[in-house]
Amino acid sequence: MRDDAGLRPFSLLSPAVLVITIGLLLPMTMMFRFSLNRYSANELMTQALTLSNYARFFGDAFYLGILAKTIAVALASTVVALVLGVPAAYFLARLSTPRLKSALILMTVVPLLMGNSVRTAGWMVLLGDRGLCNAILIFLGIREEPLRILYTGKAVLIALVAAILPYMIISLQSVLEGIERVYEEAALTLGAHPATMFRRVLLPMLMPGIFSGSLLCFILAMNAYATPLLIGGPTFQMMAPLVYQQLTKVFDWPFASSMAFVLMAVTLASVVLSSVFIQNRYGRL
């Protein structure tokens, strides 16, 4: 094929690049600039070049506490998702009936793309005082009174794990599909206990999937909005709802911008750190 150097790719790409620039890159740059401005009660925002918004965030125990809580919740839900995701992904990858396998893949991917509002409604049905879980507990005689699950940290953790688990399963499954079964069989016929085989043979080969899956889950959990807001209730504070309130209720644009950037920086830092780690340890992927 002829290649009229440079001109064709340029014209093919320019609409997409233009849309991304106007719709994301410019707004992000502008937001970073705003985060260095100053808030004033009567003018809302005054031009400045100051780090005071970041200083305010990191100097205030209230905001630091919310950041720490967000990171802790995201880490905890990622770990639980990993522990539950490995067996599920292994089961999925080693299924030998093609029909069952594609059905199970659909059952993983469809919930993943279902959207958080629907999932949140589901958890409210399940975990509420008159919800299905409490109805079962009372029916079985385990509890007399309904157990308070909704509007607690535990409920947030359960709902977050459920939301990120499909991502974990798909990430691990794609790596497991590439690991041939002969490695497992070799270890087992040589007398290794299944647990030893898993730890010494499968786990090292699965590491890239564990990292990419955990990373994706951590990012999603860090930035969760609907789950902490509706499942956690008004007293359960995480970063994403806080940014939203700051922007739409307090109208403090500079501070909201700096908080959005802190949230994004933590997210990006984890991306960079883990990709450096993976490349050092396992070579370029």
Binding site: L13, I20, L25, M28, M31, L263, M264
Partner: peptide, 24 residues
């Protein structure tokens, strides 16, 4: 670089992108 830019909406969290686009 262009490929990374086109993929960036997958990396920037929705709440962060929403804040930026709203102010823009």
């Amino acid at each position: 670089a262009i490929s990374a830019a086109l993929m960036s909406p997958l990396i920037v969290p929705g709440i962060v992108a929403g804040t930026a686009v709203y102010m823009f």
